[in-house]
Amino acid sequence: MRGTLWVLWEFQLRNALRSRWVLLYGGGLLLLTALLFRFGGTAEQVVVSLLNVVLLLVPLVALLYGVLGISSAREFLELMLAQPLQRQELFWGTFGGMALPLLLLPPLSIGIPWLVFAGGRWELLLTLSLGSMVLSLIGAAAGVAFALRWEERLYAIGVAFGFWFALTILYDGFILWAGIALRDYPIEHGLLLALVLNPVDLVRVATLLQLDAAALLGYTGAALERFAGSTLGILLAAGALALWCVLPLWLALRGFLRKDF
């Protein structure tokens, strides 16, 4: 049982490490972080500059990686399905091997320059690392789910782009609209809830709170700080993030189990 999973993981990992994309992604992030430290200065400033890169690039790369990974592994999967293997095992083996380098690359590429140049503010690195890992996981699982749902590769990529666009830009546009249109109403708590429900916003706000920027966010910031410090807030945020990790994974797994290859 365990043997097969390991074999699958190892195969996928080897595949991933041979891929130029992975090298480019990890190396690019590493170079960027190192350059920011070299020219930018303090850990806080680097985090501010890195924040949008992480919030944008990481989910996008993960989504595309998920979509392309499944569609290019099609022959391999068909071959494997002909073997006496459980589908569940095959899914976890394939997905695990695919997602693992994706999950580990951002923390490593940011962490190594951090270790060399910053040597402090570890809680910022931790927030950024955890955030990028969660976003990677969500992106990869959603990408796999899309690729399994829509056979046409271009179509699946289109859906993935749409999903990414909705999470990173449309959603914030909606918040902007709500903040202006509903200005006469006490919308602070509604906005808080809206922020918690989007993982990209959640990671951004969590990082801003670490940067002492909560005071800049006005009344909502004050509410946010109290909320983030409260047990309910932590539970709600953790719950929302967990749901965001589980839901795409479950969709991908279900798609995989039901798919007639």
Binding site: V48, E188, G218
Partner: peptide, 15 residues
């Protein structure tokens, strides 16, 4: 509209 400050440093705002 102070409520929109929660979008500080979001990609939308930078754009």
């Amino acid at each position: 509209y102070p409520a929109v400050l929660v979008l500080l440093r979001s990609f939308l705002v930078e754009l």
